[in-house]
Computed example of a mutant assay.
Amino acid sequence: MTTTPTPRPRVAITLGDPAGVGPELIARLLSRRENTDAADIVLISDADELRAAGEDAGLPVAHGDGPGTGLPVLYDNSGARPAGTTDGFERRKATREGGLWALANLAVALDMARDGRVDAILFAPLNKSSLHLAGMTENDELRWFEEVLGVETFTSELNVLPGLWTARVTSHVSIAEVDAGITRDNVVEAGLLLDRVLRGSGLAAPRIGVCALNPHAGESGRFGRHEIDVIGPAVGDLAGHGVDAAGPFPSDTIFLRAKAGDFDGILTMYHDQGQIAMKLMGFDGGVTIAGGLPVPICTPAHGTAFDVVGKGVAATGSVQNAFDLAVAIGGRKAAV
Protein backbone atom coordinates (compact mmCIF):
# COMPACT_ATOMS: atom_id res chain seq x y z
CA MET A 1 0.00 0.00 0.00
CA THR A 2 1.31 3.43 -0.92
CA THR A 3 0.61 6.61 1.00
CA THR A 4 0.67 10.18 -0.20
CA PRO A 5 3.32 12.17 1.68
CA THR A 6 2.06 15.16 3.65
CA PRO A 7 3.28 18.41 2.05
CA ARG A 8 5.84 20.37 4.03
CA PRO A 9 3.99 23.34 5.48
CA ARG A 10 5.26 26.82 4.73
CA VAL A 11 5.44 28.85 7.94
CA ALA A 12 6.07 32.59 8.21
CA ILE A 13 7.78 33.65 11.44
CA THR A 14 8.11 37.12 12.94
CA LEU A 15 10.18 37.95 16.02
CA GLY A 16 7.50 39.97 17.82
CA ASP A 17 8.23 43.11 19.82
CA PRO A 18 12.00 43.76 19.57
CA ALA A 19 12.07 45.09 23.14
CA GLY A 20 11.09 41.71 24.59
CA VAL A 21 12.20 38.08 24.64
CA GLY A 22 10.74 37.22 21.24
CA PRO A 23 13.94 37.53 19.19
CA GLU A 24 15.84 35.33 21.65
CA LEU A 25 13.07 32.72 21.65
CA ILE A 26 12.99 32.51 17.85
CA ALA A 27 16.77 32.23 17.70
CA ARG A 28 16.66 29.29 20.10
CA LEU A 29 13.74 27.70 18.26
CA LEU A 30 15.58 27.81 14.93
CA SER A 31 18.80 26.47 16.42
CA ARG A 32 17.13 23.04 16.59
CA ARG A 33 17.55 21.07 13.40
CA GLU A 34 14.33 19.14 13.97
CA ASN A 35 12.44 22.44 13.75
CA THR A 36 14.06 23.70 10.57
CA ASP A 37 13.52 20.25 9.04
CA ALA A 38 9.80 20.32 9.87
CA ALA A 39 8.74 23.18 7.58
CA ASP A 40 9.77 25.63 4.90
CA ILE A 41 10.31 28.67 7.08
CA VAL A 42 10.23 32.31 6.01
CA LEU A 43 11.73 34.71 8.56
CA ILE A 44 10.30 38.20 8.19
CA SER A 45 12.94 40.42 9.72
CA ASP A 46 16.26 41.94 8.74
CA ALA A 47 19.93 41.14 9.28
CA ASP A 48 20.30 43.60 12.17
CA GLU A 49 17.42 42.11 14.15
CA LEU A 50 18.64 38.57 13.55
CA ARG A 51 22.12 39.57 14.69
CA ALA A 52 20.70 41.03 17.92
CA ALA A 53 18.55 37.92 18.43
CA GLY A 54 21.61 35.72 18.11
CA GLU A 55 23.48 37.81 20.65
CA ASP A 56 20.62 37.45 23.15
CA ALA A 57 20.43 33.70 22.59
CA GLY A 58 24.18 33.18 22.52
CA LEU A 59 24.04 31.52 19.09
CA PRO A 60 23.68 32.74 15.52
CA VAL A 61 20.44 32.64 13.55
CA ALA A 62 21.34 30.72 10.41
CA HIS A 63 19.34 31.59 7.32
CA GLY A 64 19.48 31.52 3.55
CA ASP A 65 18.46 34.07 0.96
CA GLY A 66 16.43 31.69 -1.16
CA PRO A 67 14.89 28.19 -1.32
CA GLY A 68 16.94 25.05 -1.59
CA THR A 69 19.46 25.90 1.13
CA GLY A 70 17.82 23.77 3.82
CA LEU A 71 17.72 26.89 6.01
CA PRO A 72 15.00 29.37 6.91
CA VAL A 73 14.70 31.98 4.16
CA LEU A 74 15.04 35.62 5.19
CA TYR A 75 12.46 38.04 3.83
CA ASP A 76 14.42 41.24 4.27
CA ASN A 77 11.96 43.82 5.59
CA SER A 78 14.63 46.40 6.45
CA GLY A 79 12.83 48.98 4.31
CA ALA A 80 10.08 49.06 6.95
CA ARG A 81 12.49 49.62 9.86
CA PRO A 82 11.41 52.78 11.74
CA ALA A 83 13.62 55.84 11.57
CA GLY A 84 16.14 56.09 14.37
CA THR A 85 16.50 52.34 14.95
CA THR A 86 19.56 51.62 12.83
CA ASP A 87 21.53 51.11 16.03
CA GLY A 88 18.84 48.84 17.48
CA PHE A 89 15.58 49.18 19.38
CA GLU A 90 15.19 50.34 22.95
CA ARG A 91 14.91 47.23 25.09
CA ARG A 92 12.64 46.24 28.00
CA LYS A 93 10.18 49.04 27.27
CA ALA A 94 7.02 49.56 25.22
CA THR A 95 7.85 51.97 22.38
CA ARG A 96 6.19 53.31 19.24
CA GLU A 97 9.16 52.13 17.17
CA GLY A 98 8.91 48.58 18.47
CA GLY A 99 5.19 48.52 17.72
CA LEU A 100 5.70 49.86 14.20
CA TRP A 101 8.30 47.17 13.46
CA ALA A 102 6.17 44.36 14.87
CA LEU A 103 3.13 45.46 12.85
CA ALA A 104 5.17 45.92 9.66
CA ASN A 105 6.52 42.39 9.86
CA LEU A 106 3.11 40.91 10.69
CA ALA A 107 1.58 42.78 7.73
CA VAL A 108 4.03 41.01 5.41
CA ALA A 109 3.14 37.64 6.95
CA LEU A 110 -0.58 38.33 6.43
CA ASP A 111 0.07 39.32 2.81
CA MET A 112 1.91 36.04 2.28
CA ALA A 113 -0.98 34.10 3.80
CA ARG A 114 -3.55 35.97 1.71
CA ASP A 115 -1.60 35.18 -1.46
CA GLY A 116 -1.18 31.51 -0.55
CA ARG A 117 2.59 31.77 -0.12
CA VAL A 118 2.49 30.42 3.45
CA ASP A 119 0.20 27.95 5.22
CA ALA A 120 0.63 29.22 8.80
CA ILE A 121 2.08 32.10 10.80
CA LEU A 122 4.02 32.06 14.07
CA PHE A 123 4.73 35.33 15.81
CA ALA A 124 6.76 35.87 18.96
CA PRO A 125 5.18 37.82 21.85
CA LEU A 126 3.83 41.31 21.21
CA ASN A 127 3.26 44.20 23.58
CA LYS A 128 -0.17 45.80 23.22
CA SER A 129 1.06 49.14 24.58
CA SER A 130 3.69 49.24 21.82
CA LEU A 131 1.08 48.38 19.20
CA HIS A 132 -1.24 51.13 20.38
CA LEU A 133 1.62 53.65 20.49
CA ALA A 134 2.26 52.65 16.86
CA GLY A 135 -1.30 53.55 15.92
CA MET A 136 -3.21 50.29 16.19
CA THR A 137 -6.77 51.28 17.13
CA GLU A 138 -8.18 47.78 17.65
CA ASN A 139 -8.28 46.31 21.16
CA ASP A 140 -5.89 43.51 20.27
CA GLU A 141 -3.98 41.92 17.42
CA LEU A 142 -6.81 39.51 16.58
CA ARG A 143 -9.13 42.41 15.74
CA TRP A 144 -6.30 43.93 13.71
CA PHE A 145 -5.86 40.63 11.84
CA GLU A 146 -9.59 40.70 11.07
CA GLU A 147 -9.32 44.21 9.68
CA VAL A 148 -6.25 43.51 7.54
CA LEU A 149 -7.65 40.24 6.18
CA GLY A 150 -11.19 41.55 5.74
CA VAL A 151 -12.72 38.86 7.97
CA GLU A 152 -16.31 39.56 9.03
CA THR A 153 -17.23 36.19 10.55
CA PHE A 154 -16.87 35.20 14.22
CA THR A 155 -13.31 34.97 15.54
CA SER A 156 -11.89 34.15 18.95
CA GLU A 157 -8.55 33.65 20.63
CA LEU A 158 -8.07 30.01 21.54
CA ASN A 159 -5.65 28.96 24.25
CA VAL A 160 -3.97 25.60 24.11
CA LEU A 161 -2.17 23.28 26.49
CA PRO A 162 -1.30 19.71 25.57
CA GLY A 163 -4.64 17.89 25.66
CA LEU A 164 -6.84 20.93 26.37
CA TRP A 165 -8.08 23.86 24.27
CA THR A 166 -10.23 26.81 25.32
CA ALA A 167 -12.19 29.41 23.36
CA ARG A 168 -13.99 32.53 24.64
CA VAL A 169 -17.38 34.01 23.94
CA THR A 170 -16.07 37.47 24.94
CA SER A 171 -12.40 38.40 25.14
CA HIS A 172 -10.67 41.77 25.49
CA VAL A 173 -13.58 43.76 26.90
CA SER A 174 -14.21 45.13 30.38
CA ILE A 175 -16.08 42.98 32.89
CA ALA A 176 -18.91 45.54 32.69
CA GLU A 177 -19.31 44.68 28.98
CA VAL A 178 -19.29 40.89 29.35
CA ASP A 179 -23.01 40.58 30.05
CA ALA A 180 -23.97 42.19 26.74
CA GLY A 181 -21.70 39.81 24.85
CA ILE A 182 -23.21 36.62 26.29
CA THR A 183 -25.90 35.99 23.70
CA ARG A 184 -27.25 32.69 22.42
CA ASP A 185 -25.83 33.34 18.95
CA ASN A 186 -22.39 34.28 20.30
CA VAL A 187 -22.19 31.15 22.46
CA VAL A 188 -23.14 28.99 19.46
CA GLU A 189 -20.63 30.73 17.16
CA ALA A 190 -17.82 30.31 19.70
CA GLY A 191 -18.69 26.66 20.28
CA LEU A 192 -18.77 25.91 16.56
CA LEU A 193 -15.41 27.62 16.13
CA LEU A 194 -13.84 25.61 18.96
CA ASP A 195 -15.18 22.36 17.52
CA ARG A 196 -13.97 23.26 14.02
CA VAL A 197 -10.45 24.18 15.16
CA LEU A 198 -10.17 21.05 17.31
CA ARG A 199 -11.12 18.94 14.30
CA GLY A 200 -8.64 20.87 12.19
CA SER A 201 -5.91 19.99 14.69
CA GLY A 202 -6.57 16.31 14.02
CA LEU A 203 -9.11 15.40 16.72
CA ALA A 204 -11.93 13.41 15.12
CA ALA A 205 -14.61 13.74 17.81
CA PRO A 206 -13.85 16.57 20.25
CA ARG A 207 -15.70 16.75 23.58
CA ILE A 208 -16.49 20.28 24.68
CA GLY A 209 -17.49 21.46 28.13
CA VAL A 210 -19.29 24.80 28.38
CA CYS A 211 -18.77 27.15 31.32
CA ALA A 212 -21.54 28.86 33.20
CA LEU A 213 -21.28 32.61 33.67
CA ASN A 214 -22.65 32.93 37.20
CA PRO A 215 -21.48 31.32 40.48
CA HIS A 216 -22.75 27.76 40.94
CA ALA A 217 -24.09 27.91 37.35
CA GLY A 218 -26.70 30.41 38.56
CA GLU A 219 -28.13 28.01 41.15
CA SER A 220 -31.44 27.53 39.32
CA GLY A 221 -31.81 31.23 38.63
CA ARG A 222 -31.00 32.52 42.12
CA PHE A 223 -27.76 34.16 40.90
CA GLY A 224 -28.88 35.06 37.39
CA ARG A 225 -30.67 33.44 34.47
CA HIS A 226 -27.93 33.37 31.82
CA GLU A 227 -27.57 29.61 32.21
CA ILE A 228 -31.31 29.00 31.84
CA ASP A 229 -32.17 31.54 29.16
CA VAL A 230 -28.99 31.77 27.05
CA ILE A 231 -26.16 29.30 27.65
CA GLY A 232 -28.22 26.15 28.18
CA PRO A 233 -30.28 26.68 25.01
CA ALA A 234 -27.07 27.44 23.08
CA VAL A 235 -25.62 24.11 24.21
CA GLY A 236 -28.73 22.47 22.77
CA ASP A 237 -28.19 24.34 19.51
CA LEU A 238 -24.60 23.10 19.35
CA ALA A 239 -25.80 19.53 19.76
CA GLY A 240 -28.14 20.15 16.83
CA HIS A 241 -25.09 21.11 14.78
CA GLY A 242 -23.40 17.82 15.64
CA VAL A 243 -21.12 19.22 18.34
CA ASP A 244 -20.49 17.04 21.40
CA ALA A 245 -21.07 19.85 23.91
CA ALA A 246 -22.23 19.62 27.51
CA GLY A 247 -23.01 22.18 30.19
CA PRO A 248 -23.20 24.81 31.41
CA PHE A 249 -20.99 23.76 34.32
CA PRO A 250 -19.71 25.92 37.20
CA SER A 251 -16.41 27.45 36.15
CA ASP A 252 -14.77 26.68 39.51
CA THR A 253 -14.94 22.91 38.85
CA ILE A 254 -15.05 22.42 35.07
CA PHE A 255 -11.26 22.63 34.71
CA LEU A 256 -10.85 19.86 37.29
CA ARG A 257 -13.00 17.66 35.05
CA ALA A 258 -10.97 18.67 32.02
CA LYS A 259 -7.75 17.87 33.84
CA ALA A 260 -9.19 14.41 34.58
CA GLY A 261 -9.75 13.90 30.85
CA ASP A 262 -13.50 14.56 30.52
CA PHE A 263 -13.13 17.29 27.88
CA ASP A 264 -10.85 18.16 24.96
CA GLY A 265 -12.02 21.75 24.90
CA ILE A 266 -13.71 24.24 27.21
CA LEU A 267 -15.82 27.17 26.07
CA THR A 268 -15.48 30.05 28.52
CA MET A 269 -17.64 33.14 28.77
CA TYR A 270 -14.92 35.76 29.34
CA HIS A 271 -11.15 36.19 29.26
CA ASP A 272 -9.98 35.49 32.80
CA GLN A 273 -12.48 32.68 33.38
CA GLY A 274 -10.28 30.50 31.22
CA GLN A 275 -6.93 32.23 31.28
CA ILE A 276 -6.40 32.01 35.03
CA ALA A 277 -6.98 28.28 34.98
CA MET A 278 -4.90 27.64 31.86
CA LYS A 279 -1.93 29.66 33.08
CA LEU A 280 -1.98 27.91 36.45
CA MET A 281 -2.08 24.55 34.66
CA GLY A 282 0.78 25.29 32.28
CA PHE A 283 2.11 28.83 32.00
CA ASP A 284 5.40 27.83 30.37
CA GLY A 285 3.77 25.72 27.67
CA GLY A 286 0.65 27.62 26.68
CA VAL A 287 -0.16 28.67 23.12
CA THR A 288 -2.62 31.21 21.75
CA ILE A 289 -4.22 30.64 18.34
CA ALA A 290 -6.22 33.23 16.42
CA GLY A 291 -9.29 31.17 15.56
CA GLY A 292 -11.70 31.89 12.73
CA LEU A 293 -9.17 33.38 10.30
CA PRO A 294 -8.33 31.88 6.89
CA VAL A 295 -4.81 31.03 8.09
CA PRO A 296 -3.68 29.50 11.41
CA ILE A 297 -1.79 32.11 13.44
CA CYS A 298 -0.01 30.88 16.57
CA THR A 299 1.96 32.59 19.33
CA PRO A 300 3.22 31.80 22.84
CA ALA A 301 0.54 32.55 25.44
CA HIS A 302 2.97 34.53 27.60
CA GLY A 303 4.02 38.14 27.06
CA THR A 304 7.20 39.99 26.17
CA ALA A 305 8.77 39.37 29.61
CA PHE A 306 10.77 42.60 29.77
CA ASP A 307 12.16 41.53 33.15
CA VAL A 308 14.22 38.66 31.70
CA VAL A 309 15.33 40.17 28.37
CA GLY A 310 18.99 39.47 27.67
CA LYS A 311 19.47 37.21 30.69
CA GLY A 312 19.39 33.94 28.74
CA VAL A 313 16.69 32.44 30.96
CA ALA A 314 13.55 32.83 28.82
CA ALA A 315 11.74 29.47 28.68
CA THR A 316 11.13 28.07 25.19
CA GLY A 317 8.30 25.63 25.99
CA SER A 318 5.51 27.89 24.71
CA VAL A 319 7.25 29.00 21.52
CA GLN A 320 8.10 25.38 20.72
CA ASN A 321 4.48 24.31 21.25
CA ALA A 322 3.29 27.25 19.13
CA PHE A 323 5.63 26.26 16.31
CA ASP A 324 4.55 22.62 16.52
CA LEU A 325 0.89 23.64 16.25
CA ALA A 326 1.59 25.96 13.32
CA VAL A 327 3.37 23.11 11.54
CA ALA A 328 0.65 20.58 12.31
CA ILE A 329 -2.31 22.75 11.33
CA GLY A 330 -0.46 24.33 8.41
CA GLY A 331 0.47 20.88 7.14
CA ARG A 332 -3.17 19.81 7.09
CA LYS A 333 -4.08 23.04 5.32
CA ALA A 334 -1.37 22.47 2.72
CA ALA A 335 -2.65 18.96 2.10
CA VAL A 336 -6.17 20.11 1.21
Rank of each mutant, 00 (worst) to 15 (best):
E90D: 15
V235H: 10
A245E: 02
G99W: 13
A205N: 14
Y270R: 07
L193Q: 08
K128M: 07
D272E: 03
T155Q: 04
A305D: 08
S201V: 05
G291V: 06
G331V: 01
G282E: 12
R184S: 04
D179K: 09
L238Q: 06
N321A: 14
F323Y: 15
G22T: 01
A19D: 09
P125R: 03
P23H: 00
I121F: 11
V210T: 09
E219T: 05
S130R: 08
R114G: 11
G236C: 01
L106K: 08
R51C: 07
G20W: 09
F306V: 11
G163K: 06
L198K: 10
N321T: 06
C298I: 00
D307Q: 08
I289M: 15
D272M: 05
T183D: 04
L110V: 05
D48T: 13
R222V: 08
A38H: 02
V327Q: 11
A134W: 08
E219G: 00
Q273N: 09
R81S: 05
L280C: 04
D48G: 09
K128D: 04
A53E: 02
G20Y: 02
D56T: 04
G150W: 05
R8C: 00
L267C: 00
G247P: 04
G88M: 01
N77C: 09
L193P: 11
A290I: 14
C298H: 10
T14H: 03
A39P: 13
E97Q: 13
A258Q: 00
E152T: 14
C211F: 01
I276S: 15
R168M: 15
G150C: 11
S45T: 03
T268P: 03
P9M: 01
R184D: 03
G163I: 04
L213N: 01
D40C: 05
I329C: 10
F255P: 01
R222G: 02
N214F: 09
K93E: 12
D17W: 13
V243I: 10
V197K: 11
L106E: 10
G54A: 08
V173C: 13
L238C: 12
G68F: 09
I13A: 04
G79H: 10
G135E: 10
D140G: 01
V42C: 05
N105Q: 13
